[in-house]
């Protein structure tokens, strides 16, 4: 009984509220990403896009979600039922879990308390991100396997091999960044960038590699081999219907949101406001935190836009091109980048 009382219940409550807000927010962003995706696709193809549901089609995601809810729930009779349901749940869960370590802004000061706008400032935050992101492929693998469908299985295999190949290059590109920051905590990395320059100035090549790999990890075109509409007929989620399909589609957008957040954090200063000295304006208090969060969101939006922009520009890679790019181009590039960074860091410290 005694040790129960020693828990800081207020802290628990604060974290729970923060988690709820961030989860809701990620879902909202994912929802409107679908709208943005359709609008951007339309504009790039000289069309207008959805504009009937509400002003400018603003209510379109609601209509889409409502439609998905009312669709018939079909579980193929020859599928593995437990895994079939586990697949989309896992995809969604891992997509949402990543946002736990992202620092959204500086601390808020409310009711005489300091509330950090980050669910958990883990000192190995970025390793956690990598771990969870690579878990994400299990959603695809399990879903594809459990469907008991050849296309789905092929898609699952493709997805797994793709994620494994690109995670390597991503990790190596990130090691180079680690050498500069010397910390695995996302908050420390951001704080370093707030006081000095953004990491993109030191690691442009590393960022490019990281970005390409992030595209691959999110299964976005040109790396959407695991859902290839034209060859695998939607791939791993072919057998899914109703909200289980919705979960898969949603997880993709949540992933996109989170990986944009991670990229903005690692390379573009996170909640740092460009051309603005935060230290000189500490008297702004909470407003500074809010401005930081808004700035962070703008950076994330730019990334999401770029993701979509690429999707509607380039066609899908062939499987051999994908593997060549991953193993023969990106990994050597990332290794070279790491070696050069290491050498420069050593030289500078002498």
């Amino acid at each position: 009984m005694i040790h129960l009382l020693t828990i800081d219940w207020l802290l628990m409550l604060e974290k729970l509220i923060l988690i709820a807000i961030i989860v809701m927010f990620s879902l909202l962003v994912a929802m409107y990403s679908t709208y943005a995706e359709r609008k951007i696709a339309a504009f790039m193809q000289d069309r207008i896009g959805p504009n009937r549901a509400g002003p400018f089609g603003i209510l379109q995601p609601l209509a889409d979600g409502g439609k998905l809810f009312f669709k018939e729930e079909i579980i193929p009779s020859s599928s593995n039922k437990i895994l079939f349901i586990l697949g989309p749940s896992l995809a969604m869960l891992t997509a949402m879990m990543t946002c736990a370590v992202v620092p959204w802004s500086t601390d808020l000061h409310l009711f005489n308390k300091t509330i950090p706008l980050q669910i958990a400032d883990v000192n190995i935050g970025i390793l956690y991100v990598f771990a969870v992101v690579s878990l994400g492929v299990y959603g695809i693998m399990i879903g594809g396997w459990a469907s008991n469908n050849k296309f789905s299985l092929l898609a699952a295999l493709r997805g797994a091999s793709q994620v494994i190949s690109y995670e390597l290059a991503m990790g190596i590109a990130f090691i180079a960044l680690l050498m500069l920051t010397g910390s695995l905590s996302l908050r420390t990395i951001v704080e370093q960038q707030v006081t000095s320059h953004w990491n993109i100035w030191y690691q442009p090549l590393g960022f490019l590699i990281f970005f390409v790999c992030a595209l691959a990890e999110c299964n976005r075109t040109p790396f959407d081999l695991s859902e290839a509409e034209s060859e695998l007929n939607m791939g791993y989620h072919q057998e899914y219907s109703s909200m289980k399909l919705g979960f898969y589609l949603f997880a993709e957008y949540v992933n996109m949101f989170i990986s944009s957040a991670i990229m903005a954090t690692l390379y573009f200063g996170g909640y740092d406001i460009p051309f603005f000295n935060e230290a000189a304006h500490t008297d702004w208090g909470n407003w500074l935190a809010i401005a930081g969060a808004v700035c962070f969101m703008i950076k994330i939006s730019i990334f999401i836009f770029t993701f979509m922009w690429i999707r509607w520009t380039v066609p899908r890679f062939r499987y051999d091109q994908l593997m060549t790019l991953g193993w023969k181009k990106l990994i050597p590039l990332a290794l070279a980048n790491m070696l050069i960074t290491g050498a420069v860091v050593l030289w500078m410290h002498k």
Partner: peptide, 19 residues
């Protein structure tokens, strides 16, 4: 060319024009 980045960038400029 084989890392596709530059060519993708050219393509992106074309789609941006259409935007």
């Amino acid at each position: 060319e084989s890392i596709y980045i530059w060519n993708t960038f050219i393509g992106m400029m074309i789609t941006l024009k259409h935007f």
